[in-house]
Design a protein around this nucleic acid. Structure first.
Length: 224
DNA sequence: TGGTGATCATAC
DNA sequence: GTATGATCACCA
């Protein structure tokens, strides 16, 4: 069986993740004949896509979990030299319209985070991209407490949005989640609700997980 | 120097 | 534009 076929179970995926631990990105790229970029300025999704291929993720750009048959989402975590999360983690686009009656359990945040494969990767800018190593990945679900906090953040955000307050939301808001722009550039627009309750063109935004939260997830795994 | 707001590539 | 994958770059 090819190592790039889709995993049929969590344990199969877990076994492959353990094989990846400690591997350098240049080796993984060479195996599939991908050039290694000098930096990630113009290849921001390169590491994520490289690891998707190696693990047999199948969803492509569909709005589905990366491993749809076993319902697992793959997220890489860039690590600083101190092995702490360097960047926030993108979750999904913020729904700005037609969200009346949308519940937490039906939200994109809940669905994406219910089961995720966290894969830490060295991201210290002092290390050339190809020499960076993959860490020990693990499959995770939110604890009850984490789920409560995420739900509270989400509900707070969705209330503001349905009241036409999107543009007052900054990345300072939220304990585990935050909302930030998610677009090619600042001139991209989508339809939202203005402060007067009428439709208004506004910048598309996304839900992100704070590094505080992803660091907490890493710690609870590696300290247990 | 860490976080927020801005941005990059690509498929459809 | 929306979806996927994220990191960049600047300013407090």
């Amino acid at each position: 069986m090819s190592k790039f076929s889709k995993p049929e179970s969590e344990s199969e995926l877990e076994a492959r993740v353990i094989e990846l631990a400690g591997q350098r990105l240049s080796k993984l790229a060479n195996e599939i004949h991908w050039p290694v970029p000098a930096d990630l300025k113009r290849d921001k999704g390169w590491i994520g896509q490289l690891l998707e291929v190696h693990l047999g993720a199948s969803a492509g750009n569909l709005s589905e979990p990366d491993f749809q048959n076993i319902g697992i989402e793959l997220k890489t975590i860039p690590l600083t030299a101190q092995h702490k999360a360097k960047e926030t983690t993108y979750v999904c686009t913020v729904p700005l319209l037609n969200n009346i009656g949308l519940t937490w359990e039906n939200s994109c945040v809940y669905k994406k985070l219910s089961r995720v494969l966290w894969l830490p990767v060295e991201a210290d800018p002092a290390i050339p991209v190809g020499e960076r190593r993959v860490g020990r990945g693990f499959i995770w679900s939110p604890s009850d407490d984490e789920m409560d906090n995420l739900k509270n953040d989400w509900e707070e955000f969705m209330e503001l949005i349905s009241l036409g307050q999107v543009e007052t939301i900054t990345a300072h808001l939220g304990e585990y989640l935050q909302i930030r722009p998610k677009a090619a550039n600042a001139s991209v627009v989508t339809t939202g609700i203005g402060h007067d309750g009428r439709r208004k063109q506004t910048l598309p935004r996304g839900f992100y997980l704070r590094t505080l939260f992803t660091n907490q997830i890493l710690q609870s795994f590696f300290n247990s």
